[in-house]
């Protein structure tokens, strides 16, 4: 019994110290849920944000559809960076996001990429030859880049013929990993992922933007972050020049 009380006391002391540290000096924390395609850019942005404001950004990466489902089920995210405009709009319509806080933070592009060098120069021809055992895409149901990949393959008339050779990554990040590890020969991936590699790695073909609907990536302030100064600061930072420069550096377009 005495042991127990002592343990309880220790726990209380530990907890209060931790809480005091967390709220020290006005430096806050913001919980950000980010679409997987934006992983590399977001890591840089989070670092710059911390240096500039002293706030800390705690970042979770998943596919847009998954994050949205989690938010619907009460996930404690305060800012949502989606890979489409549809989910942030839905979040706003359902009262999960702060009305009027939506804005486009990036416009994404799609690339056909293989870890093998000199595999193709015209990706369209290569796809049509079908000279590969597996092609990776992100899950079209949950990942906007997967949805765009599906549009490309449908336009090329390859969606049905390739269906049993299309490997679906849980996120565009997993699709990329499948290709980078050589397990899939080729993948329809985010251009930003390819550009994050040393220049000239593998074979790359930028898919013409007329082959798929524009990937407009919107961010939104969620209700849970409405009164958090760190969340508001993050939104401001994301709209600012530093974040925009980082974003364009990864091959995205900005408005």
């Amino acid at each position: 019994m005495r042991m127990l009380t002592r343990f309880a006391k220790l726990a209380v002391v530990g907890l209060t110290t931790a809480m005091a540290c967390a709220s020290a000096a006005g430096a806050g924390e913001v919980s950000v849920a980010v679409a997987a395609n934006f992983t590399d850019a977001m890591r840089d942005i989070a670092r710059a944000f911390e240096t500039a404001t002293g706030h800390k950004a705690v970042v979770s990466f998943a596919s847009t559809g998954k994050i949205y489902a989690q938010i619907q089920n009460g996930a404690p995210f305060e800012v949502f960076l989606a890979a489409d405009a549809a989910r942030p709009q839905k979040a706003e319509a359902e009262g999960l996001a702060v009305p009027g806080s939506r804005f486009t933070y990036a416009k994404g592009k799609l690339a056909l990429w293989s870890a093998t060098e000199n595999l193709f120069s015209d990706g369209e021809d290569y796809l049509k030859t079908g000279a590969f055992s597996h092609a990776a895409i992100a899950n079209p149901k949950t990942a906007p880049y997967g949805f765009a990949a599906r549009q490309v393959l449908e336009r090329l008339g390859l969606w049905d013929t390739l269906s049993d050779r299309l490997v679906r990554g849980d996120t565009i990040a997993q699709a990329f990993q499948f290709v980078a590890s050589g397990n899939a020969d080729v993948g329809l991936l985010a251009l930003s992922q390819v550009l994050a590699l040393p220049a000239g790695t593998g074979s790359n073909w930028e898919i013409p933007e007329t082959y798929y609907e524009p990937i407009v990536q919107e961010a939104v302030l969620l209700k849970k972050g409405e009164t958090n100064p760190a969340a508001l600061a993050f939104i401001d930072f994301l709209k600012g020049g530093t974040a925009r420069n980082i974003t364009t550096g990864y091959g995205y377009a900005v408005e």
């Binding site: 998954k66 899950n139 149901k141 490997v167 990554g169």
Partner: peptide
């Protein structure tokens, strides 16, 4: 790789539906 009919097993299908 979540390929329907080849590698999309029950547990993965449930995960997909939930997500």
């Amino acid at each position: 790789g979540n390929i329907p009919g080849q590698t999309k097993v029950l547990s993965v299908a449930i995960y997909d539906h939930v997500e």
